[in-house]
């Protein structure tokens, strides 16, 4: 059964919906499924929010979808490590469906808790299609959850980051401190798998400096793709800043635009990421 409490705001989206659909995972404390669905809808892709148990019970099939999304949340309350218990549930129950899904020309997106789940499942970095745990999202250097707006920029152009100069959106996590061995980091760089890095507002690198790099991530890494580029995993939440008014400094930007007699946009720059996804299937 799909969950639809709030009907989507189709009036906001001017785009036709593409025929392919997204599968958004839910259950056990995942909590960002609604806004993730909303972002995809606005970009032109419909989605079903499906409880993981309905996939295990075969009420829904992963392979009926083209995009698999692990949204943000606090699955299992981050107990035993963020994303770990949910990843175990996927691995212990849905592994065959998942590998079948990955064989096709499909995409996987993980945001925040979704990144933590993908890292524990080994879907990123997945060098040579080997699903090992090669990277970790450790507790933030400050030891507590941190919720604040950050600026991130693409490190390499790929299907996800095409045409994006920056994304300005919230992070909100206690365990987002990207960590891996020097060898893994080298491969991430050489294979152009770093999707986003934390940076300053003027796009200069954060260089590990708080609060630009909010959690202590190695090499300012905010998001990576899988080796084949089909999986994107990122800590910041672009789906939480879809609209102009969701941006931290929108009231200032609005005043500046008004004084220049320029129009005030309704959408935020972050929507480009979701449009890129939909464009891939178009």
């Amino acid at each position: 059964m799909t969950q639809a409490v709030f009907s989507s705001s189709t009036k906001v989206s001017g785009e036709e919906l593409i025929p392919d659909k997204a599968l958004i995972m839910s259950g056990y404390g995942i909590n960002s499924e609604m806004e993730t669905k909303e972002a995809l809808l606005r970009a032109g892709m419909d989605a079903d929010i499906v409880h993981i148990n309905d996939l295990i019970d075969r009420k829904f099939r992963m392979t009926d979808y083209r995009l698999l999304v692990f949204p943000g949340g606090f699955s299992y309350g981050d107990d035993t490590g963020a994303g770990n218990a949910y990843a175990n549930r996927v691995r212990n129950n849905l592994w065959n469906d998942l590998t079948e899904f990955l064989e096709e020309d499909n995409l996987v997106l993980g945001i925040c808790n979704g990144f933590q789940i993908l890292a524990n499942l080994g879907l990123v970095p997945a060098f040579d299609k080997q699903y090992n745990r090669d990277i970790a999202l450790m507790p933030n250097r400050k030891g507590v959850l941190e919720c604040r707006y950050v600026t991130i920029k693409p490190a390499f152009e790929n299907l996800w980051t095409k045409g994006i100069e920056r994304i300005v959106c919230p992070v909100s996590h206690g365990e987002g401190n990207f960590s891996c061995s020097p060898e893994v980091l080298k491969r991430l760089k050489s294979q152009k798998m770093i999707a986003f890095t934390y940076c300053r507002e003027d796009l200069r690198p954060a260089d590990g400096e708080y609060p630009f790099n909010p959690n202590g991530s190695t090499a300012d890494i905010a998001g990576i793709t899988s080796a084949d580029g089909k999986v994107l995993a990122m800590m910041p939440h672009p789906e939480r800043a879809m609209e102009f008014v969701n941006q931290y400094d929108w009231t200032l930007q609005k005043e500046i635009l008004k004084r220049k007699q320029l129009p005030v946009p309704s959408e935020s720059i972050n929507m480009r990421l979701f449009r890129n996804i939909v464009d891939y299937f178009r």
Binding site: N31, S32, M34, E35, E38, A39, G72, V144, L145, E146, C147, R148, P170, S172, H237, E239, R240, A241, M242, V245, N246, Y248, D249, T251, L252
Partner: peptide, 19 residues
């Protein structure tokens, strides 16, 4: 900062404001 004030995607004016 410790309190997630952006989940559900509705942040317009949050707990801290301005540069």
């Amino acid at each position: 900062l410790q309190y997630d004030h952006t989940v559900q995607g509705g942040h317009v004016l949050g707990p801290v404001q301005g540069t």
